[in-house]
Design a binder for these strands. Structure first.
Length: 862
RNA sequence: GGGCGGUUAGCUCAGUGGUAGAGCACUGGCCUUACAAGCCGGGGGCCAGAGGUUCAAGUCCUCUACCGCCCA
C-alpha cells in the first residue's frame, strides 16, 4: 500500500465500479424485505450546495446500512423541474445575452430551458456520484418527464372531478417581476421600515370636515371605493353611511361599518381598496363594493389611476400621490412605521396582492386524513417536536393556489371554449368543448405550481397511475429525510396526495435535518459570502471525510455548523484508517484468516469483544437516527482503541503467534471497515479489496450485528492493564524521562493477569524490567486502584519535578475526596439513594483516600 | 403577538438524574520500522442567571436575560 493516503486515487474508480455493477439497483422480484426511500429531488437550477450534501449523506448512510442489513433497498434518484426557480435562472442567462423570453416566444424559450435542464441535471448527478450516493440510477426520474407529466395530469383531472380543484377569481400573491401568482408559502415576509401616511378624506356635504385614514400604501388610494370603520367605534358612529370624496380622483365613496376593521390601528378608519388588498377584497365582497384596478400585473399604474398616474411604476406613483395630497393640504401627518412586507421567494420583488382567475386545491378535505395519519402514528417525525408544527399548519391550512403564469412547468390540462365559456378538463387533449361541441377551444395558458408534481413524487416515480410492480412493492416508502423548511411545501402535501390517491401514507418516518451553517453558526448565503462548495471540499479532503464530518455533526433537531477545521480532522481520521490498514496488509503473508479460539490472548478477546459491542451500539444509534453518536463512537473506537492499543499490542504478539494475531487483526479490521462503510464508502471499499476477502464488494457484505464475539471476562483485566500502563507513562512524562531511556518498574499488585503480560507492559512503557506483586520501595511513585507503582529511571531522579507532580496529584485527590465525602454525608443519601450508587461512592472515596495516603507518605519522603 | 430551539473548555459541539466529555486550538516531550495528517503526556469548566423538586440537577419544573428560527 502507498504510504500516503490520497482519496483521489480511488474515489472515482469505486463510484464507477458500483455503478457499472449495478449494486444499488433494487430488485422488485427479490425475496428480501424491502426498504425504500425517494430522494428529495434537487432543483435543476444549478449545483448542489452543502445542504444537499448533508441530506444526501444521511440518506446514503441509511441506504448502505439497510442494504448491508439484507434489505432489498431502493433509493430512487431524480430531479425537480422547479418551475419559477428554473425559469428565473434561464431568464437571467438570457438577459446576459441581451435577450428576453418574450422575444424568443414560449416555444423557443422552453427549448432553452430544456437545454439548461440537460446540463444542470448532468452536473447534479455527477455531484451525487462524487459524494458516493448509492442511488438506483435505473429508476432515475424527472418531474417534467413524459411519464411523470402523465401522473400530474391524471391527478389534476381526478381532483377536479372530485371537486377538489376549482377555478376562481380571487386575490392572490402576485410577483410583478415573475409575472405570476404565488402560493401563500412562496411569499417571504421581511420586516421593513416604511411610513404610515395619514390622509384626510373630506365629506361630500361638508368638505371642511373629513375622516382621516392611515395607510402604508398611499398609491392604492386611487383605487379606493369606501372607507370602513368598526361598527362599535363611537368616534365614527355618526359618519357611517355618509359620503366622502376621494382626494385627487374625486370619486364619491361611502363610509361603511365592518367587523374586520381594527379600531386600534391608525385612526380606526381604514381606506378600502378591494382590488389591491386581501382584507379589503373580502370587505368589498361583503359590501358589494366596486373594484377599481389601479395597478396592473407588471406593477404599473393603470389608466383607471387617472391622468398623470397611468403608466407610472407603483413606487413612483406613491411619491406623486403623497406630493399631490400635500399640495391639497390633505396629508395630515407621516409616521415612521415598521411592518412586514411580502417578497417573492425566488426573485425578491415586493409582492402585489392582485385579483385574478386562478386554480386552487381545496385543502381541508385532504388535510384531515393527513392529520389523522400522523395522530395514529402511521407517519412519525424525528425528532418528534416537528409533529406540532405539522399539526399547526395542517389545522390552519388555506386553499392552495396551484396555477402559475409562467411557461416552464406542467401545462394545466384545461381547455376553454370560446363559444360557450365552458372549461373542459381532460388528461388527453380534447378536440371539442365537452359541453357545446365547439371546436373553438384553447388550452389554459397557465402551468402548475412546481410543488404540485412534487406532492406526487413518492408514487408518481414508482409508475403511478399504472399499477406497477414497483408501486406495489416500494410504496409506502420507509423514510424521508428533509429540512424543516419544506415541511409545508413538500412533506405535508405529499401526505395529502399520498393518502388521497394511494390510500396510504407516503412514508413511515420523516427525519428532519438541521440547517447548514458556517463555522460561526451563521446561515450560509451568497450575500454573506460564507458559502462552502461541497465539491471543493471533496476535492481538498475527499468525499469520505466530508461525509463523516456531516454525519458526526448531525444531532437530531440541531443545526449543523460546518467547519473546515473539523473536516481536516476527519481527513486525518481517514488517513489513520489507511495507515492502520497498511500495517495489517504489510504484515500479512497469506496466513489463514480463520481465528483459532484456543489461541486467543486476552487482548485479542478484548478487541473482538469491543468490536461486537461497538457494532451493537452503532446499529442502535442508526436505528434512532443518531448519526453523530454512531460516527463519534466509531471514530473513538477505531483510533483510540483499535489503533492506539490493539495494534501496538499486536506488534508484540506477532512475535509469539503471528498467525492467530494476523487472523484477529484481519477479522477485527474487516468488521470495522464494514461498520464504517455507510459513513466512508470509498476508503472502506479500497482497503477491503486489498484485504483477503470474499465477494465482489464490501457494499454487498452483511453489516456487523455484534453477535459474533463475546468475551466479557477479559474486560476488567485489560482495563486494569491499561490503567497501569497509563500511570507509568504519566510518571515518565511528567518527570521528563527521555522516551529512549529505559526505566525499571515495580507494581505492588499481586495480579495474575499483569504478571502474565510483563512483556507487553515493558514494551508499552519502555521498561527494561517490570516487577509485579513486589515493590522496589523507591523511585517515582504512582498509585492505581489497590496498588503502588514505582518507576526507577536509568539516570538520577529529578526530585523537584517529582515533588511538583505529586503535589498536583494530591490536590486532585483532595478535591475528589471532598466531593465524595460531602455526598456521603448528605442527609438522606444513604437511606434513599439506590444501594449500588452508595456502594460505588463509598468505594470511590475509599480508593481516593487510600491513594492519597500512599502519596502523602511518599511526598514526605522526597 | 403566538410557537420552537439554543446558552456546557478559546472555537464548534455531545451529554440518557448518580465523579463534566469529544474534535480542533493551546502546551511539554518524542522522527518508537502503519501513520509527524503521527505517538506519549498535560493544562483548561460557578454547565447564562435566579428560584424550586430531589438523598442527588448540566440533566426535571418555574421565572429572567440574551441569541437564533418559524408563523401571524
Amino acid at each position: 500500500m502507498e504510504k500516503s493516503f490520497n482519496p483521489k486515487d480511488f474515489e472515482e474508480k469505486w463510484a464507477k465500479f458500483w455503478r457499472e455493477n449495478r449494486f444499488f439497483e433494487a430488485d422488485e422480484n427479490s425475496n428480501k424485505p424491502k426498504f425504500s426511500m425517494v430522494i428529495p429531488p434537487p432543483n435543476v437550477t444549478g449545483v448542489l450546495h452543502m445542504g444537499h450534501a448533508l441530506v444526501f449523506t444521511l440518506y446514503d448512510i441509511i441506504a448502505r446500512w439497510k442494504r448491508m442489513q439484507g434489505y432489498d433497498t431502493l433509493w430512487l434518484p431524480g430531479t425537480d423541474h422547479a418551475g419559477i426557480a428554473t425559469q428565473v435562472v434561464v431568464e437571467r442567462k438570457l438577459k446576459e445575452e441581451g435577450k428576453s423570453k418574450e422575444e424568443l416566444g414560449r416555444k423557443e424559450f422552453l427549448k432553452r430551458v430544456w437545454e439548461w435542464v440537460e446540463q444542470s441535471s448532468r452536473t447534479i448527478n455527477y455531484q451525487l456520484e462524487k459524494l458516493g450516493c448509492s442511488v438506483d440510477w435505473s429508476r432515475y426520474k424527472f418531474t417534467l418527464s413524459e411519464e411523470l407529466s402523465k401522473a400530474v395530469r391524471h391527478a389534476f383531472v381526478e381532483l377536479y372531478r372530485e371537486g377538489l380543484i376549482y377555478r376562481d377569481y380571487y386575490m392572490v400573491n402576485w410577483c410583478p417581476r415573475c409575472h405570476t401568482a404565488l402560493s401563500d408559502l412562496e411569499v417571504e415576509y421581511r420586516e421593513e421600515k416604511g411610513k404610515l401616511y395619514y390622509i384626510k378624506y373630506p365629506f361630500k356635504e361638508n368638505p371642511q370636515e373629513g375622516i382621516v385614514v392611515a395607510t402604508t400604501r398611499p398609491e392604492t388610494m386611487l383605487g379606493d371605493t369606501a372607507v370602513a370603520v368598526h361598527p362599535q367605534d363611537e368616534r365614527y358612529k355618526e359618519a357611517i353611511g355618509k359620503t366622502l370624496v376621494l382626494p385627487i380622483i374625486g370619486r364619491e365613496i361611502p363610509v361603511i361599518a365592518d367587523d374586520a376593521v381594527d379600531p386600534e390601528f391608525g385612526t380606526g378608519a381604514v381606506k378600502v381598496t378591494p382590488a389591491h388588498d386581501p382584507d379589503d377584497f373580502e370587505i368589498g365582497k361583503r359590501h358589494r363594493l366596486p373594484m377599481v384596478l389601479v395597478i396592473d400585473d407588471w406593477g404599473k399604474m393603470t389608466p383607471q389611476a387617472g391622468e398623470g398616474f397611468a403608466g407610472l411604476d407603483r413606487y413612483e406613483a406613491r411619491e406623486k400621490v403623497v406630493e399631490k395630497l400635500k399640495e391639497q393640504g390633505l396629508l395630515v401627518k407621516v409616521e415612521d412605521y415598521t411592518h412586514n412586507v411580502g417578497h417573492c421567494y425566488r426573485c425578491g420583488t415586493v409582492i402585489e396582492p392582485y385579483p385574478s382567475w386562478q386554480w386552487f386545491v381545496r385543502t381541508k378535505p385532504l388535510a384531515s386524513p393527513a392529520i389523522k395519519a400522523v395522530e395514529e402514528g402511521k407517519t412519525r417525525f424525528v425528532p418528534e417536536n416537528w409533529t406540532k408544527l405539522y399539526f399547526h399548519w395542517m389545522h390552519n391550512i388555506r386553499d392552495w393556489c396551484i396555477s402559475r403564469q409562467i411557461w416552464w412547468g406542467h401545462r394545466i390540462p384545461a381547455w376553454h371554449c370560446r363559444d360557450c365559456g365552458h372549461i373542459t378538463v381532460s388528461e388527453e387533449e380534447p378536440r371539442v368543448c365537452e359541453k357545446c361541441g365547439s371546436s373553438n377551444i384553447y388550452q389554459d395558458e397557465d402551468v402548475l405550481d412546481t410543488w404540485f408534481s412534487s406532492a406526487l413524487w413518492p408514487f408518481s416515480t414508482l409508475g403511478w397511475p399504472e399499477d406497477t410492480p414497483d408501486l406495489r412493492r416500494y410504496y409506502p416508502t420507509d423514510l424521508l429525510i428533509t429540512g424543516f423548511d419544506i415541511i409545508f411545501f413538500w412533506v405535508a402535501r405529499m401526505m395529502m396526495m399520498g393518502l388521497h390517491f394511494m390510500k396510504d401514507v407516503p412514508f413511515h418516518e420523516v427525519f428532519i435535518n438541521g440547517l447548514i451553517r458556517d463555522e460561526h453558526g451563521k446561515k450560509m448565503s451568497k450575500m454573506a459570502g460564507n458559502v462552502v462548495d461541497p465539491l471543493e471540499m471533496i476535492e481538498k479532503y475527499g468525499a469520505d471525510a466530508l461525509r463523516f464530518t456531516l454525519a458526526v455533526q448531525t444531532v437530531p433537531g440541531m443545526d449543523v455548523s460546518f467547519s473546515e477545521g473539523r473536516l481536516a480532522g476527519y481527513k486525518a481520521f481517514a488517513n489513520k484508517i489507511w495507515n492502520a490498514s497498511r500495517f495489517v496488509v504489510m504484515n500479512y503473508q497469506g496466513e489463514s484468516t480463520e481465528i483459532n479460539p484456543a489461541r486467543l490472548t486476552p487482548f485479542d478477546k478484548w478487541i473482538l469483544h469491543r468490536v461486537s459491542q461497538v457494532a451493537r451500539q452503532t446499529n442502535s444509534s442508526l436505528r434512532e437516527y443518531r448519526f453523530y453518536e454512531a460516527a463519534e463512537r466509531l471514530y473513538h473506537f477505531i483510533w483510540h482503541e483499535f489503533c492506539d492499543w490493539y495494534i501496538e499490542i499486536s506488534k508484540l504478539q506477532m512475535r509469539e503467534d503471528k498467525e492467530n494475531t494476523m487472523a484477529v487483526l484481519i477479522n477485527a479490521l474487516e468488521a470495522i471497515l464494514r461498520m464504517l462503510h455507510p459513513f466512508m464508502p470509498f476508503i472502506t471499499e479500497e482497503i477491503w479489496q486489498r484485504l483477503p476477502h470474499q465477494g465482489r464488494s464490501i457494499t454487498l457484505t452483511p453489516y456487523p450485528k455484534g453477535d459474533e464475539w463475546e468475551f466479557p471476562e477479559v474486560m476488567e483485566d485489560v482495563t486494569l492493564f491499561m490503567e497501569v500502563v497509563s500511570e507509568i507513562r504519566k510518571i515518565r512524562s511528567e518527570n521528563r524521562i527521555n522516551p529512549r531511556e529505559k526505566i525499571r518498574v515495580s507494581v505492588s499488585l499481586g495480579n495474575h493477569f499483569l504478571s502474565l503480560h510483563l512483556k507487553e507492559i515493558s514494551a508499552l512503557v519502555g521498561a527494561s524490567e517490570v516487577l509485579i506483586g513486589s515493590s522496589f520501595g523507591k523511585g517515582f511513585k504512582g498509585v492505581v486502584k489497590g496498588g503502588e507503582i514505582f518507576v526507577l529511571p536509568g539516570k538520577e531522579m529529578d526530585l523537584e519535578a517529582e515533588r511538583q507532580r505529586v503535589e498536583k496529584e494530591l490536590k486532585k485527590l483532595e478535591r475528589e475526596i471532598e466531593k465524595l465525602a460531602k455526598r456521603l454525608s448528605m442527609p438522606g443519601f444513604r437511606e434513599k439513594a439506590p444501594a449500588h450508587v452508595v456502594k460505588k461512592t463509598e468505594e470511590a472515596l475509599k480508593e481516593a483516600e487510600d491513594k492519597k495516603q500512599k502519596l502523602e507518605e511518599y511526598y514526605r519522603s522526597l
